[in-house]
Design a protein around this nucleic acid. Structure first.
Lengths: 354, 354
DNA sequence: CATATCTTTGTGTGCGTACACACTAAACAA
DNA sequence: TTGTTTAGTGTGTACGCACACAAAGATATG
């Protein structure tokens, strides 16, 4: 039988009210009784019944999640799925989550959302940290109001965030390079394919990946050529010409990497290339979004480096909930596993549900 | 405000007792009232408060988990960690889990455990399906008593298990072969290292991996040599001699695969080989147990193919709990993701906690 | 010494549900 | 008629805890 408050009260020779005051540090307890109760608590190894506690307290939490808006099949859709899944699960702890979307190519929209969220006085916040400075400012405000917040996407050091969930994109870049070099004989040319998308977007994540990639090449003393090629999805002519030249002038395979999550768009573009040239390319991309998975299965892409994006969102919400409900302190930095996906194992990756 | 039973009762013009009888199908309700209540239930979109329900019901579940006994740092230790982790989490639902250990090289010990478990009349059982026939017999008994059970390790088709959590070892074998061939130039010799361990253990899992591996070689028209080498950890002389000959007679790299989870033992054995020969080997192993991870980091092993073994145990317990507590029906077959681990990403794999 | 004030302690109610039990009315048997 | 059974229904208590409130005791004030 589990020890309950009445048991403690009996043992300490006090009423349940006094025990309650001790447990919750509500004060108004004499020194002697306080000691008696604390002793009983320890000796009987009391652990509160969370269910009963929650039922009685009528507590309820409201969280806000601030993430980029997304189109179907894109990276951020995955993260949101995780958040929504977690939202379902914490419903039983009287916890509600509102998701706010900002335009990831427009800081103003982020700041606007932040204002809205501040007004609403949430009990916890999940923030996708795409805009470092505004996030820092927001964090200060949250600190002041003692509202716990969790970062996802990329970490911002020296903040008082409860926790961070994301991936080490630098290492991911290194692994990309290693896989590319090791799995391709006589690779002497590597190109970075950059697909124009709205404003020129070079995110922290992309920069890190590139740095990791390049560092690996330096470490292993790579002597081949490295080239950057720009593609405009609307008008891919120019890029295709550059690429064609590159492939034609090379008797060996050519490696290609795309630093953002949209290698599937590149796969679409290169459909126009003749078979023999296409087969000379060894492409590595990032993130298991539907389009990329398809490209992987079609053998257009050789490897996808991924992380459980959905878990980022899921874990972030759960961390907040567990912290507030169960007072569990999460690790401050949580890197997701770096997953290597081939045509062969991608189904099992995708198949595994939260 | 959430709808509660009294609200339903009021709306339907009956007492809470009647609503309760309808909700739980306890019968003894007239047709008219039943319809009234059901209508109210639907219209008000009633969802029970799990916390209150659990508190009131004083329900408590007892699960048994039947797994192989293990030594520290071995495969089954991981699975048990998952089970224990899940056990902690479901404690709040008044659920207790007893873990039973059998000797995986001795069917009799399994049958003995089964008898013990049957007597204790558990509410749910997790079974590591190493011994197919006895498991089937046990499953029949559980079916008869309407006790839900979940398989882990390998699936046994055509059983009434609630669910299965495990990995597709055939595909894992294929991927092993692909990685080995693609990441090694001029590979023309592959050996299967088999380390003797107690009785000759060739598990279903190992057979599957081998089949997948060989099938890939056939598919890709591999023309090299394939050899099986036996190693006795007590007396590795003979095996080492064979291996030495193999390496010396070969100017190209040699691939090696270990089908069970103990490639770290092989890594120990080959420490006796001269550096130049050791470096000629490209080894692939299975499962991220501590010894293997170390071997991976030491560059003795090139790839580890893994699955979240701990998740198998964790998910199995959670599936039982969610089924009984929340009436959630899990998928019947759940393959774990097939994880590819390199020296570079293994830390992030291991680091990620349940 | 009576009264006011403050501190400490105990009691009671409610959270939403489950379930035992009591009660009613109708049907049936003796 | 009376007692017994049975289907249908409502009531009350308990689950373990939180919290408002009442009570009691201690101290201060005039």
């Amino acid at each position: 039988m589990k020890v309950k408050i009445v048991d403690i009260a009996k043992k300490a020779g006090v009423s349940t009210g006094t025990v309650d005051r001790v447990i919750h540090n509500r004060g108004k307890v004499s020194k002697e009784k306080l000691e008696l109760v604390e002793k009983a608590l320890k000796e009987m190894n009391y652990e509160p019944n969370i269910l009963a506690s929650f039922l009685a307290s009528k507590r309820n939490f409201r969280f806000a999640a601030i993430v980029p808006s997304y189109t179907s099949g894109s990276y951020w859709e995955l993260a949101c799925e995780g958040i929504k899944k977690a939202a379902e699960e914490v419903e039983k702890y009287n916890t509600q989550i509102d998701i706010y979307y900002f335009d990831q190519y427009n800081v103003a929209t982020f700041n606007e959302i932040v204002q809205q969220v501040i007004v609403k006085e949430y009990d916890g916040v999940v923030i996708a940290t795409l805009f470092e400075k505004p996030v820092k400012a927001f964090a200060k405000d949250l600190d002041f109001n003692k509202v716990p917040y969790v970062f996802i996407d990329s970490d911002i050091p020296n903040q008082n965030n409860l926790s961070y969930f994301g991936s080490n994109t630098y290492i991911t870049g290194k692994i990309a390079a290693r896989l590319l070099l090791e799995s391709t004989n006589n690779l002497n040319t590597i190109f970075f394919a950059h697909i124009k998308f709205k404003r020129s977007e070079i995110s922290v994540q992309m920069r890190n990946r590139e740095k990791g990639f390049i560092d690996y090449l330096i470490e292993t003393d790579f002597r081949g050529r490295i080239q950057h090629i720009e593609f405009d999805p609307e008008n891919a002519k120019e890029g295709l010409e550059t690429l064609t030249k590159l492939l034609e002038n090379n008797e060996y395979p050519v490696g290609g990497i795309i630093l953002n999550s949209r290698i599937y768009q590149f796969a679409d573009i290169i459909q126009k290339l003749p078979e023999n040239l296409r087969k000379k390319m060894y492409l590595i991309g990032h993130d298991a979004i539907p389009g990329n998975v398809e490209a992987l299965k079609n053998d257009d892409v050789k490897f996808l480096l991924s992380q459980r994006t959905d878990l980022q969102g899921y874990d972030a919400v759960k961390a907040l909930s567990n912290f507030l409900v169960f007072k569990e302190q999460p690790a401050k930095i949580n890197y997701m596993p770096i997953d290597i996906l081939l045509k062969d194992n991608v189904d099992y990756y995708y198949n595994y549900k939260l």
